[in-house]
């Protein structure tokens, strides 16, 4: 890993078009990737755990739904369960809540990103992917303020552009990448 900074975790927020985008990233991700990944993908309140089982089936890193009080570990990706907000505590454990929607969404990307930014400080990588709203912009800004690394999917290739655009305008992220570049970048931390 050379002179690269040591990061502790990755958070990803995606909405409309997110399933396809996550497929591309997980398709390219190296099996040996060792940072815990935490994902909020907007979905309908009564969705089942299709996303987790699908990504898990790609046989890269293990993928599961986040459980309350669980502490994310390397080699795993965690998906926020439908209809719950996913928060991170100072000790990096998960809390699930059923509070009001934030940015019309539950789970909300901002809620995860803002709390994860406090938990991991400058050890966090935040990634905003395709989506048709502006959830996640504030959270990504917070990650940057805390010294973390910020990445946004290139709106040029995003299925829905408003979420990445909003993030780029709000944050001035460290990188604007295509999906494959995001995967390649993550792989460089192995």
């Amino acid at each position: 890993m050379g002179a690269k900074k040591k990061y502790q975790a990755v958070v990803i927020g995606s909405s409309a078009g997110g399933l396809n985008a996550l497929k591309v990233i997980f398709g390219e991700l190296d099996k040996r990737f060792q940072l815990p990944v935490v994902i909020v993908q907007h979905m309908s309140p009564d969705a089942d755990n299709y996303l987790a089982s699908f990504l898990d089936g790609m046989k890269k890193i293990r993928v599961k739904e986040a459980d309350e009080k669980e502490i994310p570990t390397g080699g795993f990706a965690y998906i926020a369960p439908p209809n719950y907000h996913l928060l991170m505590e100072k000790d990096c454990s998960f809390t699930l809540t059923v509070g009001e929607r934030v940015n019309y969404a539950r789970p909300s990307i901002d809620v995860l990103f803002e709390t994860a930014a406090e938990a991991y400080g400058d050890g966090l990588i935040g990634i905003i992917l395709t989506g048709a709203n502006n959830d996640g912009s504030h959270g990504l800004k917070k990650i940057k303020e805390m010294g973390g690394l910020t990445i946004v999917q290139d709106p040029e290739e995003s299925e829905s552009v408003s979420m990445p655009r909003s993030a780029i305008e709000t944050v001035n992220p460290d990188h604007v990448f295509k999906l494959k570049e995001i995967a390649k970048f993550l792989n460089s931390f192995i």
């Binding site: 928060l87 991170m88 505590e89 100072k90 809390t95 509070g99 809620v111 803002e114 709390t115 938990a119």
Partner: peptide, 9 residues
């Protein structure tokens, strides 16, 4: 109570 939850609220 969950500190992260309290803080947000």
């Amino acid at each position: 109570y969950s500190q992260a939850h309290l803080k947000r609220r």
